[in-house]
Design a protein around this nucleic acid. Structure first.
Length: 504
RNA sequence: GGGUCGUUAGCUCAGCUGGUAGAGCAGCGGACUCUUAAUCCGUAGGUCGUCGGUUCAAAUCCGACACGGCCCA
């Protein structure tokens, strides 16, 4: 603000020679005026210029005399005595600058020679093509807009240190094109999902992130406390129970894209906070959801990648092909034909089998729960092609509608792609008395030591008692979907600031 | 939580079976008016993650801890 208030060197703890030299340059800059000007406004983006003038030869450009104003971070610099080249990078891409004594005068060029990689420049000039045909700006006006005190990572290799990529994502974004691409694609995916639902008459809503009773999923919550209300609150593990209350309220098609929080382990597939799409539509069922999901994934891939064929970790998945649909036991038998239907329906056999495989199972598990445990262990990771697993047991699906023919199972599916769960959807349980009974079962499981079992939510039961129309609802893990569409092996590669331990 | 690999200059990396550290880029000084990872000459820069142990001597061997990658739970 005040030029006179010269911020006399406030060194950082990790001050080194390079930073000290740049700090001296900044001190000199302050003496000559405002070192952080805010009155330069650009007119052009690098990639727009490349596109717009792609067909123009140097002769054309020299005749037209197109004046442009661009700004960005200097990422390459080549000084040759009386003339220099530099490359600046803006959010769209890069463009080369040509600076010479002839055009700016010797003083400006001389000052430029002391600018550092990483500095933010604003320039005005005219377009031309170099001998090699590269579109460049012949600079007539040059300004240093922001001095960078810290040096950039190595210009050729970029930043490769994984930890630093996560902790200082801005450096990863500056130096690695692929990182920029991944997050641009992520933005595109979310945008096209929004468009997909809005086009179908859905309302986008936001429901609470802080819940008095954590519900809607089997997971441990983060706990916090509201001082003024003096009450415990939990970061939400799922928005499901609120969204269905909205359907009770007459919002017959709703969706929400927002964060969920689960207080569990961290891995290449799990971040404590992650982004979830949930959507609900009245007067539909789970079969409709499966069709809708296939359509949506095709549309999103087509829009974002311009193809339905995606490459993931060296293998190809074609979203245009119909997705397979298997029950849990069908899937087990497809990949492990040594099991018979009779064995998979035999509780004693399943328990014995799980024990010999060294897999823990919940003590009260019925046949369906045991089948699912076996499936999770031996089959899930093999489902590379998009596959719907259908008819989940009621005992592990406390919010899903019972199947009309077999009340032990529910009208529910999960979608697996590349060996990972991507989506979970079902016809909603809208019978308030059955829901109350299921909550009671969950409470018993919780008392028996199941930390992930659900709470009894009387508020939700009351809403159901006003009447939830027959409804279908689904959740899709956005981060995992982004992993698929950007060929990223770890969830940390698609979350800008993944959770890490504190540095010190 | 377990296994495994890693942590050396601002960044990318060397450093064999122990003898107190090297390169490239970035920086600084110089040369150079079409370079593009510019080039050429010169120069500066390091509590080798932390703490402890073995040893005449530790970046190197041993142990603990911290942080991270990958695999498993």
């Amino acid at each position: 603000m005040n030029q006179e208030v010269d911020q006399q060197n406030i060194p950082s703890q990790d001050e080194n020679q390079i930073i000290a030299e740049r700090r001296t340059k900044l001190t000199e800059l302050r003496k000559t005026g405002n070192a952080f000007p805010n009155d330069f406004h650009r007119d052009d983006l690098a990639s727009d210029l490349h596109q717009q003038y792609a067909a123009d030869t140097n002769e054309t450009l020299e005749v037209t005399v197109k004046t442009v104003r661009v700004a960005g971070r200097m990422v390459l610099k080549r000084v040759m005595g009386k003339a220099s080249f530099a490359t600046i990078q803006d959010m769209s891409g890069r463009i080369q600058l040509y600076i010479s004594n002839d055009l700016t005068g010797e003083a400006v060029h001389q000052a430029f020679k002391h600018y550092d990689l990483g500095d933010i420049l604003g320039v005005q000039g005219t377009l031309f093509r170099t001998k090699t045909g590269e579109l460049s700006v012949r600079v007539t006006h040059l300004r240093l807009l922001t001095k960078a005190l810290r040096p950039l990572p190595e210009k050729f290799h970029g930043l490769t240190n994984q930890e630093q990529k996560y902790r200082q994502r801005y450096l990863d974004l500056i130096t690695n094109e692929n990182t920029r691409k991944v997050f641009a694609t992520r933005s595109g995916i979310i945008q096209s999902i929004r468009e997909f639902f809005v086009a179908r008459g859905y309302l986008e809503v936001e429901t609470p992130m802080m819940h008095p009773i954590p519900g809607g999923a089997a997971a441990r919550p983060f706990a916090t406390h509201h001082n003024a209300l003096d009450m415990a609150l939990y970061l939400r593990i799922a928005p499901e129970l609120y969204l269905k209350q909205l359907v009770v309220g007459g919002m017959e098609k709703v969706f929400e894209i927002n964060r969920n929080f689960r207080n569990e382990g961290i891995s290449t597939r799990h971040n404590p906070e992650f982004t979830m799409l949930e959507f609900y539509e009245a007067y539909q069922d789970y079969a409709y959801l499966m069709d809708l999901t296939e359509t949506m994934l095709r549309e999103v891939a087509e829009k974002v990648l311009s193809t339905t064929k995606i490459a993931y970790q060296g293998r190809e998945i074609d979203f245009a092909q119909p997705f397979a649909r298997f029950t849990i036991t069908q899937a087990i038998r497809k990949y492990s034909p040594e099991y018979t239907d009779a064995q998979l329906d035999d509780r004693a056999f399943l328990i014995d089998r799980l024990q010999s495989l060294g897999i823990a199972h919940k003590p009260g598990s019925g046949v369906g729960g045991l089948q699912l445990t076996l499936f999770d262990e031996i089959t899930e990771h093999l489902l590379f092609e998009p596959t719907f697993i259908i008819d989940y047991p009621a005992e592990v699906s406390p919010l899903a509608r019972r199947n009309d023919i077999n009340p032990e199972i529910t009208d529910r599916f999960e979608l697996y792609i590349a060996g990972r769960e991507i989506a979970n959807g079902f016809s909603e349980l809208n019978d308030p008395e059955d829901q109350a009974a299921r909550f009671l079962d969950q409470t018993k499981a919780k008392e028996a030591g199941d930390a992930e079992a659900m709470h009894y939510d009387a508020n939700y039961i009351r809403a159901l008692e006003y009447g939830l129309p027959p409804t279908a609802g689904e959740g899709i893990g956005i981060d995992r979907l982004v992993m698929l569409l950007t060929d990223s092996p770890s969830i940390r590669d698609v979350i800008l600031f993944p959770q890490l331990r504190q540095e010190d």
